[in-house]
Write a protein that binds this DNA or RNA. Structure first.
Length: 325
DNA sequence: CGGTAGTGCAATGTCTCGGG
DNA sequence: CCCGAGACATTGCACTACCG
C-alpha cells in the first residue's frame, strides 16, 4: 500500500516535508503494531507447544536445572546486571565459569588480584553480594540466570559506551567534532591525554597512572592529591582496546586494587591511632587495645566498632600506586 | 498538564572467529 | 571459503520522573 505523502526530494516545502514525516510515523506505528501482534502469536504458539511437551514422559526422571525464570525475576536479574556493570566490574570475561566456581572460605579480599583464582573468588563474592539470597544456590547456576545477567551486562556496556562517547564526549573533553572524525585524528588528539609515552625511538606504551586525564592539574607525574576519574579512547569497549592495545580490564582491576588498598591502609592507620591513644590515656586500663592480649574478644569488638565507624565514613583517600611492571 | 531528560530495551547491523 | 555464533554498537520507541 502506497502512502499519500509526497516523494522525498530536496525542494520539498515545509508542509510537504511535514506530511512525509507524518506518513513515516504512521508506517512506523503500523510496523510496531504488527510486531506486537507477531510477538503475541508467537507467545500463544509457544504455550500450545508447551502444553504438548508437558505430556507424561516415560523412563528415569532426571534432575532438571532451572532453565527459565518468572517475568519478575528476569526483570530483577536484568537490573542487577546493569548495576553490576556500573558499580562492580565492567567485564566478567567468564561469567559462567565464575558462577560455577566454589566459594573459598579462606578467600581474603586483600589478596583479590594476586592470581587468577583469587580474582575469580573476588568476582564471585561481588556477585553473591549483589544478588539477593533468593538467587543464591542452584538457581544462580541456571542457564537462564547466567544468560539474562550476561545479556544485561552487555546491554549496559553498549548503552553506556554509546551515550558517553557519542553524546557527551565533545562536552567532556572540550574538543571539536574534527578531532573525533577518524581513528587517527582521535588518536592524535587524545593519546597523550590518556598516558601515551614514547620511551625511546623503538618503544612506546600507555602508562597506567602517569595519565594527564586522570589528574586535575597534571604536573608530569602521578599526583595522589589530584587524581580523578576520566574516560578513554578506543572505538569499542572491549576487554583489550583494539586501537591502543590497552588492557582496560586489567587497568580497571588495578584501579580497584589501588582504591581497595587505600581504604584498607586508611583503616589500618586510623586503628593504629586509636591504639596509641588508648595506650597513652589508659596505660593500665583493662580495656587497653595495645597490650591486653588476654581480652581478645574485647579487642575484636572494638576493632569491629572502629571498622563500622570507618565504613560509615564516605570520604576516603587513596594510597600510593601499585607498581605493575 | 505538557515538555524534557534520563533510562530500559528490542531490533538490527557490523565485525570477528572458529568449525566444517 | 562459507556459515553460524557471539560480541559489540547504534538506533529509536516506550516509559518514568521531574519541572515549570
Amino acid at each position: 500500500m502506497r502512502s499519500s505523502s509526497p516523494e522525498l526530494s530536496q525542494d520539498l516545502t515545509a508542509s510537504e516535508l511535514y506530511k512525509c514525516i507524518q506518513a513515516a510515523r504512521d508506517q512506523q506505528q503500523k510496523a510496531n503494531n504488527a510486531r506486537k501482534e507477531l510477538h503475541t502469536l508467537k507467545r500463544q504458539l509457544a504455550d500450545v507447544t508447551n502444553t504438548h511437551d508437558s505430556a507424561p514422559q516415560h523412563g528415569r526422571k532426571t534432575k532438571k536445572m532451572v532453565d527459565s525464570g518468572s517475568e519478575e525475576d528476569t526483570k530483577e536479574i536484568k537490573k542487577l546486571g546493569h548495576k553490576f556493570v556500573m558499580m562492580k566490574m565492567i567485564w566478567l570475561p567468564d561469567l559462567s565459569g565464575t558462577i560455577h566456581t566454589k566459594l573459598d572460605d579462606q578467600y581474603n579480599h586483600l589478596e583479590r588480584f594476586e592470581n587468577h583464582a583469587s580474582k575469580v573468588q573476588g568476582e564471585l563474592v561481588d556477585l553473591l553480594d549483589l544478588l539477593p539470597q533468593k538467587f543464591h544456590g542452584e538457581i544462580m547456576q541456571s542457564k537462564w540466570l547466567i544468560k539474562t545477567f550476561h545479556k544485561a551486562m552487555q546491554n549496559q556496556r553498549s548503552n553506556t559506551h554509546t551515550r558517553l562517547r557519542n553524546q557527551c564526549r565533545p562536552e567532556i573533553f572540550d574538543c571539536m567534532a574534527i578531532n573525533l572524525f577518524s581513528i587517527e585524528s582521535h588518536r592524535d588528539k587524545f593519546r597523550q591525554m590518556i598516558g601515551y609515552v614514547e620511551r625511546d625511538n623503538r618503544s612506546a606504551r600507555y602508562d597506567r597512572f602517569n595519565v594527564p586525564s586522570l589528574h586535575k592539574n597534571y604536573n608530569g607525574s602521578f599526583d595522589i592529591e589530584t587524581a580523578r576519574w576520566a574516560v578513554s579512547a578506543d572505538t569499542t569497549l572491549t576487554v583489550q582496546g583494539v586501537q591502543t592495545g590497552i588492557n582496560w580490564h586489567a587497568d580497571l582491576e588495578k584501579c580497584i586494587q589501588y582504591l581497595q588498598n587505600g581504604l584498607d591502609r586508611h583503616k589500618a592507620s586510623v586503628l593504629k591511632l586509636f591504639r596509641e591513644w588508648d595506650e597513652l590515656f589508659f596505660p593500665n586500663s583493662e580495656t587497653s587495645l595495645a597490650c591486653n592480649n588476654d581480652d581478645k574478644d574485647h579487642e575484636d569488638q572494638t576493632m569491629k566498632d572502629v571498622m563500622n565507624m570507618l565504613d560509615a565514613d564516605e570520604e576516603e583517600a587513596p594510597a600510593e600506586p601499585q607498581t605493575d611492571e
